[in-house]
Computed example of a mutant assay.
Amino acid sequence: MELLALFLAALAVILAIPVPKLLHTASFRGRSPWAAMVLWQAIALAGGLSMVGAPIIYGLAPFGDSLPHALGGAVQLTLTEDYESLGQLDVHPQHIFALCLGLLLGGHLVLTLARTYFRVLGARRRHRQLVDLLSTPLPNTVDDADTQVIEHETPLAYCLPGRTNASSVTVLSRGLLNTLSESELGAVVAHEQTHLRQRHHLLTVTFEAWYRALPWLPTNRYGREAVLELTEMLADDGALAQYSPETLLRSLALSSFETASHRDAPGSALEVDEDVPATSNTLITGARLQRLLAPTEPLGKLAMFGVVSSSAALLAVPTGLLLLS
Score class of each variant (00 low, 15 high):
L109A: 12
S168H: 04
N165S: 06
R291W: 06
S167G: 01
L101K: 07
Q88H: 11
R291K: 11
W40G: 01
A265P: 00
G72P: 04
A42C: 02
L270G: 01
L270Q: 02
R212N: 13
A16T: 14
L8C: 09
G107N: 07
G106P: 05
R250T: 12
R174V: 01
L104G: 11
K301V: 04
V75T: 12
L130N: 07
V227R: 06
G102C: 09
M1R: 12
V52W: 00
T319E: 02
F118T: 15
P245K: 10
L105V: 13
L315T: 12
P55G: 13
Q198A: 14
V307Q: 06
A253R: 10
G48C: 05
A36G: 03
L111T: 09
Y211P: 00
R125W: 08
T80P: 01
T282H: 12
S256V: 02
M37K: 05
F7Q: 08
L240Q: 09
T25L: 12
L323S: 07
F207C: 00
W40C: 01
M233V: 08
F305C: 07
S181Y: 03
L3H: 10
N178R: 15
V19F: 13
Y158N: 06
P20R: 15
L86S: 10
K301E: 01
L109G: 02
M304G: 05
N140Y: 07
L99G: 15
E192F: 02
R31E: 02
N281C: 07
P18R: 08
D273Y: 07
L177A: 00
A241I: 03
L45H: 05
T206D: 01
R126L: 11
V110K: 05
D144C: 01
V308I: 11
A226E: 08
L104W: 09
E297G: 01
L248C: 03
G186Q: 11
V52K: 07
L71R: 07
L60H: 13
H195P: 04
L321E: 04
P218H: 14
L172D: 02
L302N: 05
A253W: 10
L248D: 10
A235N: 12
H127P: 00
V308Y: 13
G87M: 05
Q148Y: 05
R288G: 04
Q198L: 15
N178T: 06
S135A: 08
L130G: 01
I17R: 15
H191P: 06
K301C: 00
T179W: 02
S261R: 13
G106K: 10
V276F: 13
A269G: 09
A260P: 04
L293P: 01
V307R: 04
W34Q: 05
V52C: 03
R29N: 01
T112S: 14
A166G: 03
L99H: 12
A287Y: 05
F28R: 09
S181C: 00
I57A: 11
L217N: 14
V308W: 07
